[in-house]
C-alpha cells in the first residue's frame, strides 16, 4: 500500500509537468489549428534560458522560470509572426503540410542552435529548494514539490485567464469560430500570436521547472514534444481539460504501469510505449479523444 501511494504520488508529479507542456500544445492547436512540432524544443529553450539567468546573473531560480517564460513567449511571437502568419493571410496553399514542415524544421533548427550555443553537455539548473521532505513512508525531492505547486499555480492562473477575462474570451472565440470572431471585430492575428506565445511559454516554463529535476541538454525536448502530442490526441485535440486529464493519466500510467504491468524488470524499457498504447485504446473507443469535440482542420 505504502509503495502504491508513493508510486501514485510520483505519477501525479510527473503528470503535472506533462500538463504544463501539453496545455500549451493544446492551446496552440485550439486557436491556430496546427500542431507545433517545435514544442519540445521550446521547452528545451526555456530550460536553458532559466539556467543561464540563474547561473550567470545569479537570479533566483524561481524568478528565472518566469523570466524564461517571458523570453520563450517573445520567441513564440516571433516564430508565429515570421513563419506561421502566412497560413492565415491566404499566402499558403497546402496549409497542413506547410504547418508540419515549418514547425518541424524550426524544432531541428533549435536543437542545432542549442548544440552550438550551449554545447552538448548535460547541465543541472539550480535547485529551487534542495533536500527532501519525508512524510511517514513518503520521501519526495523538494524540487519536485516546489515544481508541482508552481505547475498547479500556472495551470490555475491560465484557466482563470481563459475563462474569466476579456482576452480569454477572445481566445476561446477564435478557437471556436475564427470567421465569427473576425466579423465581430476580433483581430485573429493578434490572438494567434498570443495563443502561440502563451502556448510555447508554458512549454518553456515546464522546461525551466524540469531543469533541476531531470537535467537539461539540447536534446531534452524530443521526448516531451512527442509525449505532449500523444496527450493532446488522447485528451481531445484543442481541449484544455483533455490535456490536463490526459497528462495526469499518462503520468500515472507510466509510473504505475512500468511497475504493475508487464514484467517489472523490463517495464522501463517500454515506458515510453505506454502512452501510445493508452492512446490506441482510447482512440479505438472514442475516436476524437477523451474530450475532443470533433476533428478540426485549418480551413
Amino acid at each position: 500500500m505504502d509503495f502504491f501511494v508513493a508510486q501514485a504520488l510520483n505519477g501525479l508529479i510527473i503528470g503535472l509537468l506533462y500538463a504544463l507542456i501539453a496545455i500549451g500544445l493544446s492551446l496552440i492547436f485550439s486557436v491556430l489549428k496546427l500542431v507545433n512540432f517545435a514544442h519540445g524544443e521550446c521547452c528545451m529553450m526555456g530550460a536553458f534560458v532559466s539556467y543561464y539567468f540563474s547561473t550567470l546573473f545569479g537570479i533566483n531560480p524561481l524568478i528565472a522560470v518566469f523570466l524564461s517564460m517571458v523570453v520563450v513567449f517573445l520567441l513564440g511571437v516571433a516564430m508565429q509572426y515570421f513563419f506561421l502568419r502566412p497560413l492565415y493571410t491566404g499566402a499558403v496553399e497546402r496549409k497542413d503540410e506547410y504547418a508540419i514542415l515549418i514547425t518541424f524544421g524550426l524544432g531541428i533548427f533549435f536543437q542545432n542552435l542549442a548544440m552550438s550555443l550551449f554545447g552538448p553537455w548535460t547541465k543541472k539548473s539550480q535547485d529551487f529548494l534542495s533536500g527532501v521532505t519525508s512524510i511517514g513512508f513518503l520521501t519526495v525531492d523538494n524540487n519536485r514539490l516546489v515544481v508541482s505547486f508552481v505547475a498547479i499555480a500556472i495551470v490555475l492562473a491560465l484557466l482563470l485567464i481563459i475563462n474569466k477575462t476579456f482576452v480569454g474570451k477572445a481566445l476561446r472565440a477564435v478557437s471556436q469560430d475564427r470567421d465569427a470572431a473576425a466579423i465581430v471585430g476580433i483581430n485573429s492575428h493578434r490572438i494567434n500570436m498570443l495563443a502561440f506565445g502563451v502556448g510555447v511559454a508554458l512549454a518553456g516554463g515546464a522546461g525551466a521547472l524540469i531543469g533541476p529535476i531531470f537535467l537539461i541538454s539540447p536534446m531534452m525536448g524530443i521526448l516531451p514534444g512527442i509525449k505532449s502530442f500523444v496527450i493532446i490526441v488522447l485528451g481531445g485535440m484543442g481541449s484544455i481539460k483533455g490535456a490536463i486529464i490526459g497528462s495526469l493519466l499518462l503520468g500515472e500510467i507510466e509510473s504505475l504501469g512500468s511497475i504493475y504491468l508487464l514484467d517489472p524488470t523490463r517495464g522501463l524499457a517500454y515506458k515510453n510505449a505506454f502512452g501510445v498504447l493508452l492512446l490506441a485504446i482510447v482512440l479505438l473507443v472514442k475516436p476524437t479523444g477523451l474530450f475532443g469535440e470533433r476533428h478540426v482542420r485549418m480551413e
Partner: peptide, 12 residues
C-alpha cells in the same frame, strides 16, 4: 531492470 536510454524518471 532494463530501461530505454531516453528515460528520465527512474523513481518508480
Amino acid at each position: 531492470i532494463v530501461a530505454e536510454r531516453t528515460v528520465t524518471d527512474f523513481t518508480p
